[in-house]
């Protein structure tokens, strides 16, 4: 995609991120278009989570390294970024333990954004959450907690949903159930960035794919065009 394309939502240019003195990202160029599903794969420590943290404001980066609809996004506070339309489903779900299921979901509305997603629609997509809406979020199974984490992010009606390892620690059947909801989420033009360990799942669910290795993009392309061999080389750097 060329820059200046009006369907371009998010663009990073030479994105560098640090944890203290340790550099985690060494110049990432990434683009996400409106309504596009993009996968980010890579081994542990490749910088996938750091990338999502930089995009959502949890890791601060210089303003010019991230642009959102042409506006500089870097350096802004997470609370400001969610208002602009980026929502993160964090690694490990991180629900609020002293809030009920419904209260966790309602926290997504603190951004003040409105749109198609509300409690009613979420409960239709994940009926089990309606049943358990008044229970403490800690009483739910891992898969159900992941549904709450996704729902909480959707409640802010983002234009771009960032998902950090939705399948982490979940049984394959549960992962399938969660990913089955993805088409409905993207059906109204919401863009999605999936960080995923399961490469073939990531390929099936997205149009484009980036592979990170040691903080750099080692491969990018259309998800369906990339071969196993290409991905394996980019993944392990062999």
């Amino acid at each position: 995609m060329a820059s200046g394309n009006k369907d371009l939502l998010l663009q990073t240019r030479d994105l560098q991120a640090f944890y203290g003195d340790a550099q985690a990202l060494f110049g990432i160029d990434l683009e996400v278009g409106k309504g596009e599903a993009v996968a980010i794969i890579g081994a542990n420590g490749a910088g996938k989570s750091t990338l999502l943290k930089a995009l959502s404001g949890l890791v601060r980066v210089p303003p010019d390294q991230i642009h959102w609809r042409g506006l500089p996004l870097g350096g802004r506070a997470p609370s400001e970024i969610v208002r602009m339309g980026l929502a993160l489903v964090p690694e490990g779900r991180r629900l609020f333990p002293s809030l009920s299921v419904q209260e966790n979901l309602l926290m997504g509305q603190e951004s003040g954004r409105t749109g198609p997603w509300n409690l009613e629609r979420l409960f239709k997509m994940f009926p089990i959450l309606q049943e358990k809406r008044n229970q403490p979020s800690t009483s739910l199974s891992g898969g159900q907690q992941q549904m709450v984490a996704i729902g909480r992010a959707l409640m802010s009606n983002p234009e771009l949903l960032l998902c950090d390892e939705l399948s982490l620690g979940l049984a394959p059947i549960v992962v399938r159930e969660i990913y089955n909801a993805l088409p409905e989420i993207t059906s109204e033009g919401m863009a999605v960035v999936l960080v995923e360990q399961d490469v073939s799942l990531a390929q099936r669910m997205t149009q484009r794919l980036y592979c990170l290795q040691e903080g750099r993009v080692s491969l990018q392309g259309n998800s369906s065009d990339l071969t196993r061999e290409q991905i394996r080389q980019a993944y392990f750097g062999l």
């Binding site: 959502s56 609370s79 964090p90 991180r94 609020f96 209260e103 997504g108 909480r152």
Partner: peptide, 14 residues
Amino acid sequence: RAVSDDPEIAELMG
């Protein structure tokens, strides 16, 4: 309660 539980995630919520 949310900021008491996890201020970082509360910020992510806006």
